[in-house]
Design a protein around this nucleic acid. Structure first.
Lengths: 238, 238
DNA sequence: GCCATCCCGTTACAAATCGTTACACACCGT
DNA sequence: ACGGTGTGTAACGATTTGTAACGGGATGGC
């Protein structure tokens, strides 16, 4: 269990890829249990498609994803849904939204989360300056990733967005020691579409196109096998 | 001159509009001179279209905009340019990118900026926990605004994006005490297009359409008079 | 076990939006 | 006046979306 005193004095600055992938960075450094105080005896459990919280809810706790995938989303008055981000095990949610949730959060799979009271977080900021710098680093990383995603939405074609998305999931696998050529999609086509600013049909068509081109295989609708990562990278550029 | 000791213990949480506008929030609270140390005797001056720094540059200082408008942008390998954000007087730039700039910054007008050494910022974080919380709040606000812009790019039409953009500029005017019905554009059509993920022609067409509809007037290409804010708001929704 | 139903994904075709191309005009400084 | 830059307008075309129909797997009742 990582004690705060074990944290290094300087914030590590990982080399930043200009075309880094848009999903939020893993949070292992900070999300490991910090003190017994912070950790619930039993993580909360949610089942698939259950909402963890809604936009506008008071956020007295931040969440650490222990198991499963969470979808952060917002509903627009015209009925559209926009998916802000996906959160995976190790990620922290809501550590920089002071009083009120700025988006809703829904479990895509069975999910286990630890709930960390915000006042403890604030207390740590007060007493441990290095902790504050850690949080700032997390916020900076999330901002960078969000900007990356924004660039994707502003400047890239449907094909390129899908390629970036798949490569991001593959990279996460690689970083967690899983097979980077096999991506299991916890999210539906609707979720992907709402995340990438595309319709479900375009998402589906693009999957089919990639399959026909031999770049991916789709043994099941929820499983993507990356056959030609180089072609995907090429596609992710334009 | 604001001393740190004058800062309140609690971070103020302004009520957050679900459909807040995408430009970054004003930073007056924190950007006012904190100590004599932090403030250059003479702010640096840049002329229009001059780069303040480039993506990848080492960021030993953060910048406070004193006068003028700054455009944060990134160049893509395919030649496209993406405008990340616009920064106005009172805004801080680069306070949460530890070592390396994640975007380039260009002056759109004559610009004056104060350069605040990063090591002083870090020192303040170590010694003043409330300062750290302030910075976290700034980062959270910028993240929220970036997400707002992202939603705009993902889910809104060209018309709606333009409406949101104009309303954001108008709101900034209102907050600074200027006339909210008169917007002076420091940026060109290209800048706007690269910010909203549209081409210059679409930007131009949409301006013309709004003018024909009597929603705005364009006495000059750089001056927008908002005639029907309600219609703009309506347009910004869908 | 069997069948009906529902949800999700896929595909095809028509429609719309937006990008591309091309050209003309306005403004500005030389 | 001239050229350059920035902008406005129009015709055309490509990408993406909307609509609709079909298929397939999962669920649930009988």
């Amino acid at each position: 269990m990582l004690a705060l005193s074990a944290m290094p004095d300087t914030v590590s600055d990982s080399p930043r890829n200009v075309f880094a992938l848009p999903l939020p960075p893993r949070r292992d450094e900070i999300s490991e249990p910090i003190t017994e105080q912070l950790v619930q005896a039993m993580p909360s459990v949610y089942s698939a498609r259950e909402d963890l919280f809604l936009e506008g809810d008071e956020s007295s706790h931040i969440l650490e994803v222990v198991e499963g995938v969470i979808c952060a989303y917002r509903l627009l008055p015209d009925g559209h849904r926009h998916v802000v981000s996906f959160y995976f095990p190790g990620d922290l949610i809501g550590y920089c939204s002071p009083s009120t949730q700025t988006f809703s959060a829904q479990a895509l799979t069975k999910v286990r989360v630890r709930r960390i009271p915000r006042h403890l977080l604030n207390q740590l900021i007060e007493t441990r300056p290095q902790f504050a710098r850690r949080l700032l680093k997390l916020a900076a990383d999330e901002l960078t990733m969000t900007r990356e995603h924004m660039l994707c939405l502003a400047a890239k074609s449907a094909e390129a967005r899908m390629a970036v998305f798949l490569l991001a999931l593959a990279r996460r696998n690689r970083e967690t020691g899983a097979d980077p050529t096999r991506v299991d999609l916890a999210m539906t086509r609707v979720d992907i579409g709402d995340y990438l600013g595309l319709t479900i049909e375009t998402v589906s068509r693009t999957f089919s196109k990639l399959k026909r081109a031999g770049i991916i295989a789709l043994p099941r609708t929820t499983t993507v096998l990356i056959r030609d990562a180089a072609a995907l990278h090429e596609m992710a550029q334009g």
